[in-house]
Amino acid sequence: MRQVIYTIVENTPLTANVYRMRLRGDTSAIVAPGQFINLQIGGLYLRRPISVCDWDGDGLTIIYKVVGKGTEALSGMAPGEALDSLSGLGNGYDLTCAGESPVLIGGGVGVPPLYGLAKRLMRQGRAVTVCLGFNTASEVFYEDAFRALGCEVRVSTVDGSHGAKGFVTAILPEHPTHYYACGSEPMLRAVFKALPCSGQLSFEARMGCGFGACMGCTCETIAGYKRICRDGPVMRKEELIWNA
């Protein structure tokens, strides 16, 4: 973890309420896709955790949905403004268990961290399938971005207005070697049930500190309660107690 003052380079809407923000600054604390940063936003007390979509030596990209006061304030910020951030938080996805043909499964605003993951898995020469689930056509984002990486991209919408109709579980490949999922808990549970292969699931939570000090966010595992912010946000399928 490192405290970094990032400079906003871009803050543009991708859909009616989903924004992409590019930040310039030190990314040395970010070591794996699926990690997050915790942003201090003017007028609010607690920091707001946002997953890292992608990063390089000069800066990083986040994609966030406006759901409350924090993200609303964030959407109003302009290029040039500074953002105090705790960078490189959480464990991130483990790429070593991907196998030959992993599938990446994202629901709504759970899609962004899969982009940085897909990019790195493609660089390793894996045959990556990306399954993206949204509510409706107007909420779809980054479909083409994943395609540009060379991934096989499948999209579903709940109302059928774009791609296959239904939940993301309807478009999963039959025999992936491993899965990486990020989305709402109902989506994660559905994926957990649908796929027999090994997998990693990224969780979302209201956090106090974001670095493991306050015990504000926990997840029950076979090894006891783990901190979502510090021991996660990515948990291995095998350690979750969801079988019951």
Binding site: Y45, L46, G208, M215, C217, Y225
Partner: peptide, 16 residues
């Protein structure tokens, strides 16, 4: 102790 169910944290004016 396992503690309480989530969410355990909420924003408040100038606090939490």
């Amino acid at each position: 102790r396992l503690g309480n169910p989530l969410p355990r944290i909420a924003e408040a004016p100038a606090g939490m």
